[in-house]
Design a protein around this nucleic acid. Structure first.
Lengths: 125, 125
DNA sequence: TTAACTAGCAACCTCCAGGTTGCATATCAT
DNA sequence: ATGATATGCAACCTGGAGGTTGCTAGTTAA
């Protein structure tokens, strides 16, 4: 059973295809995750099936409205999607933005590795 | 020359060593990256040698004080370190927190994969 | 057909992140 | 010694994030 194994070679200069004009705005996505409540919601949705606003409000110490606002923030950057189902509105996790963040962090780390290499080479020279 | 190759198997139930009591607060780190100015500073520092506040202020449209505050935020979560050097204060990148974020994103993604697997198994049942 | 449940909208409040300015202080170059 | 440079500190301002409450409206179950 293939489980969508993620293996990446981050120190790769020639990032041709995937990294085309991907100068995306990652800051808003980071910001969306920069809140404990929102992180909890994300973990919760990434852990199972879609849930309604009322369901997601349970376990929180917040109002439904507050949770709604948080969900809107998450939806605004694509971390969750919503679909109406009867009288409720179900939110489901979407892994794509988080994967992009992961790739971005890899990119920055690889830049750092390269910088260290250059520095080391310079010193050894 | 070994370049600290990063290869991970994220869908791994038995995360023994590294994931001990690592219930860390990731939200503040995400929040620190959730600002375009700060992201730019990080990229800049991850791209080369330590730089002073004045240097980092160049290229920005902000005041030195504003940049200072941003740097303090980044330092607060460990993304950068600072060391005084004469009359200036040099900031250097520290990859560790970003690596932890990457691992965390991997963890959430793997939870999502598992959830999908369970759902699939349930449907096929 | 009601009563209970789920969600949206709008107004409002509070606090702090992000930014500025002004002044003080340490260090470097000449 | 002195002027230029680099930073720190404190006060201040403003907008928006995060939260609440009250009311309205659609959907479901009895």
């Amino acid at each position: 059973m293939k489980v969508a194994g993620r293996s990446r070679c981050s120190t790769f200069k020639n990032m041709s295809a995937s990294r085309k004009a991907k100068q995306k705005n990652h800051a808003p996505v980071f910001a969306a995750l920069g809140d404990e409540t929102r992180l909890t919601l994300v973990r919760r949705l990434a852990n199972g099936e879609p849930q309604s606003i009322s369901q997601l409000t349970e376990g929180t110490e917040l109002t439904r409205q507050a949770v709604t606002k948080h969900l809107r923030v998450l939806e605004g950057v694509g971390i969750v999607n919503s679909k109406p189902s009867g009288r409720e509105k179900l939110f489901e996790f979407n892994a794509h933005p988080l994967n992009e963040l992961r790739d971005y962090l890899d990119l920055v780390s690889s830049q750092w590795d390269d910088a260290l290499s250059r520095l080391k080479a310079f010193v050894e020279d």
